[in-house]
């Protein structure tokens, strides 16, 4: 049984800033990290193989430097890593990305049957949550998104039981293998790699596959294979601020003049808020 984890190199979005002078994103120099949700997926995959056997393969589609993130996954216990990297694949949207990754998984499947594909719930840079379902659809795998717990595998019956989170409820689901899971952080943080694990990861020879190795149709991958195009990227126009009341000039005065203005200028909103109807509804 082979488990494939799809991981993504992402900019550490907590570090990304907007240049206030030009109102543009400052991407340069922001460190790249492995998408945190994907690390959770790798950890869960390794735990499954520790219990049920099998191997974990990690794949990423990205620029050559994404090798760093693959090695991180290897240090956590993944058995092999594949870097899907090719200029022809650059600029892909989610449709083209899921096509390329599905092609890579199919290639892995020819060597050792792939029973489980795992992805993070979403990537912290794009937050689209589309690539996982896209891969599942292309491969014809059962799709289980927002998985927060892996309850067990039944190798005989070829089923997996998981808990998944939906709005205001959780579901316990038994699904037929092969499956594609996208995982929540609740599944459990990645371990701290052992020293031998880390050394093994550094020494591991990472396979690099391009569009040719994957026998990808050129029209279906990269920028060409992407139905969506980005027209513009811009910082959201800020709301305009209103009056500022400073309490250093007297607490009582500041608060009361604010409330006076509020009740006067926003009379409609205030009366709606304070009407008994809405109070009952919201209480």
């Amino acid at each position: 049984m082979q488990i494939v984890c799809c991981v993504k190199q992402v900019p550490d979005t907590t570090q990304v800033k907007i240049d206030p002078a030009t109102n543009t994103l400052v991407r340069a120099g922001v460190e790249s990290i492995c998408n945190p949700y994907d690390l959770v997926a790798v950890e869960a995959a390794v735990k499954i193989t520790e219990k049920y056997g099998g191997s974990v393969s990690v794949i990423t589609m990205g620029i050559p430097s994404a090798e760093v993130q693959l090695r991180e996954c290897l240090s956590l216990g993944a058995h092999q890593a594949i870097l899907v990297s090719d200029r022809a694949l650059a600029g892909a949207d989610t449709l083209a990305t899921s096509y390329t990754l599905a092609s890579a998984i199919q290639k892995l499947n020819e060597i050792d049957p792939v029973q489980i594909v795992m992805c993070g719930k979403q990537a912290i840079d794009g937050d689209t949550a589309q690539t996982g379902p896209g891969i599942a659809t292309r491969l014809g795998f059962t799709q289980l998104t927002y998985v927060s717990q892996i309850i067990g595998l039944d190798i005989q019956k070829q089923t997996i039981t998981v808990r998944r989170e939906i709005e205001n409820a959780s579901q316990i689901i038994e699904a037929k293998l092969p499956v594609m899971l996208t995982v929540e952080l609740e599944l459990g943080a990645a371990r701290y790699a052992t020293l031998p694990g880390l050394i093994k990861a550094i020494k591991h020879e990472i396979k690099v596959w391009g569009a040719k190795e994957l026998s990808c149709t050129a029209e279906k991958c990269g920028l060409k294979g992407s139905p969506t195009s980005v027209k513009t990227i811009f910082a959201p126009p800020p709301r305009k601020g209103g009056p500022v009341y400073d309490t250093t000039e007297g607490m009582d005065q500041a608060v009361n003049s604010l409330l006076d203005t509020l009740f006067q200028k926003e009379a409609a909103i205030m009366s709606e808020i304070l009407s008994n109807d809405s109070k009952v509804k919201n209480a």
């Binding site: 701290y192 790699a193 052992t194 020293l195 031998p196 880390l198």
Partner: peptide
């Protein structure tokens, strides 16, 4: 001795 598990070299 390093701070990692099995961390002696």
């Amino acid at each position: 001795v390093t701070n990692r598990q099995d961390g002696e070299v």
